[in-house]
Design a protein around this nucleic acid. Structure first.
Length: 109
DNA sequence: CATGTGACTCTTA
DNA sequence: GTAAGAGCCACAT
C-alpha cells in the first residue's frame, strides 16, 4: 500500500482518531508514519479541516510537546483544558511528562 | 501554470 | 547551551 497525496489528509484524520485517551502525539510522528516525515507542516495544515471531523486535534502537538496550534481552537485555553481534562499536565502551553503521554501511530499497530 | 502560505522539524552558527 | 535559518511537502489562490 502506498500513501497517496489525496489520502494524506484523510490518513492524518484517521491516525489522530486512533490516539488513545490521555495520550498525545506530534505532527512529525504522524507525518513519518504516513511516509512523509518532511511534511510535518502538512499534518498541522490538515488539522485545519479537523474541525469538521471528529479528530481530537488537541491531542496533536509539536515535537516539543508545545501547544502551538492552540490558537486555532475556539478559545485560547480550550486545547490546554482538554488535555488537562484527560489527565495530561500542561503548563504554559507545554505538556509535562510529554514523554510519558507521547503516543506514536506505529505503536498501536 | 506559478506563487504564497503554514497547527513543523532539523541542521548549522 | 542557546539562537537563528533553511528545508520541506501539500493545499489554496
Amino acid at each position: 500500500m502506498q500513501a497517496q497525496t489525496l489520502n494524506f489528509f484523510d490518513k492524518v484524520y484517521e491516525v489522530a482518531k486512533q490516539i488513545p485517551y490521555g495520550k498525545v502525539t506530534s505532527y512529525g510522528a504522524i507525518a513519518t508514519y504516513l511516509g512523509a516525515a518532511k511534511s510535518a507542516r502538512m499534518v498541522g495544515y490538515a488539522m485545519n479541516g479537523s474541525h469538521d471531523k471528529d479528530v481530537p486535534a488537541h491531542r496533536v502537538v509539536n515535537r516539543k510537546g508545545l501547544l502551538t496550534g492552540k490558537h486555532h481552537f475556539e478559545g485560547t485555553n480550550l486545547m490546554q483544558q482538554l488535555l488537562e481534562s484527560e489527565g495530561i499536565k500542561v503548563v504554559d502551553n507545554q505538556i509535562q511528562n510529554f514523554d510519558n503521554v507521547f503516543w506514536e501511530p506505529s505503536k498501536m499497530l
